[in-house]
């Protein structure tokens, strides 16, 4: 009895801590007052203003575009790294390759952002590419730091599954070139999907690297939100938080339901 009480107590406190700030933010997004924390009455005013705010809407599209492109390229290269490190023995300067593909994981984003910005400026001076900072430079930077995360996921999946399947396919006469596409890729598909999803969220959430590498016309959502809340509060951002939370909760519930129906099958 005592144990059960302690368990419920811990979980209640823990989850309240996790949810209290988010829920407060959502509650106050319906507040009809410019001063965020002084309750005046229920209204949908900030949602209306949010959907009329061109700057936020445009930043949202930019972010979605960069995140989906970045996730796709990062996943392709992450799969290549994972496959190379687990299946290909002859890699020139293998330890260097391992270093390159794993150290972005431990590199503070501020250092990554600074080094990429200085690189883009220098390469613009020397070869004229990239011609200006903008969506392309943010995209390149996001791909660069996401690759390592995808590679880790793919690598752990590839090293835990039975290589004999690939050998069996070879014995049965599958062209080596096709083994990856017909055997390996389908088996690691869940890992590929979760790698893509992780890279997508990393890009969508990134503020620091994007702030360094962005230029005119390439303001991502976090950059715009940060500029709004850096010095004060913004009721529009409250409304935005509520919408983002709703999307995340719906996504989480649908994944939960899909998982449950899969288990039942």
């Amino acid at each position: 009895m005592n144990k059960l009480f302690f368990k419920i107590f811990t979980l209640t406190i823990g989850f309240s801590f996790l949810y209290f700030p988010i829920l407060t933010l959502i509650a106050y997004s319906f507040n009809d007052n410019k001063r965020v924390m002084v309750w005046k009455g229920f209204s949908l005013r900030w949602y209306k203003e949010l959907f009329q705010n061109e700057q936020i809407l445009e930043a949202f599209y930019t972010s979605l575009k960069i995140a989906s492109l970045s996730a796709t390229f990062a996943t392709i290269m992450g799969v290549m790294i994972g496959f190379s490190l687990t299946r290909i023995s002859k890699i020139p300067a293998r330890p260097f390759f391992i270093f390159l593909s794993s150290s972005p994981l431990v590199m503070p984003e501020i250092i990554l952002g600074l080094s990429l910005l200085l690189f883009f400026i220098s390469s613009n001076h020397i070869i004229g590419f990239p011609s200006s900072k903008g969506q392309l430079t943010v995209l390149i930077s996001h791909i660069t730091f996401s690759v390592a995360f995808v590679a880790v996921i793919i690598q752990s999946r590839l090293s835990s599954y039975d290589k004999n399947i690939e050998e069996a396919a070879q014995d049965l006469g599958t062209i080596p070139n096709m083994i990856f596409w017909k055997v390996t890729a389908p088996v690691i598909l869940p890992a590929i999907l979760s790698g893509w999803l992780l890279a997508f969220t990393l890009s969508l959430d990134d503020l620091v690297v994007a702030s360094f590498t962005t230029g005119p016309g390439a303001n991502t959502l976090p950059i715009v939100v940060f500029s709004k809340v850096r010095l004060g509060l913004s009721p529009e951002v409250n409304a935005l938080s509520a919408i983002i939370m709703l999307i995340v909760i719906l996504a989480a519930i649908s994944i939960y339901l899909i998982n449950r129906s899969n288990i039942k099958k």
Binding site: P21, I22, Y28, T201, V225, S241, A252
Partner: peptide, 18 residues
């Protein structure tokens, strides 16, 4: 997982509000 997925920046902002 829900807080893990939701925006980092907005979760920091929530504390600024609180």
């Amino acid at each position: 997982i829900i807080p893990f997925w939701s925006s980092f920046l907005l979760r920091v902002y929530a504390w600024k509000v609180l």
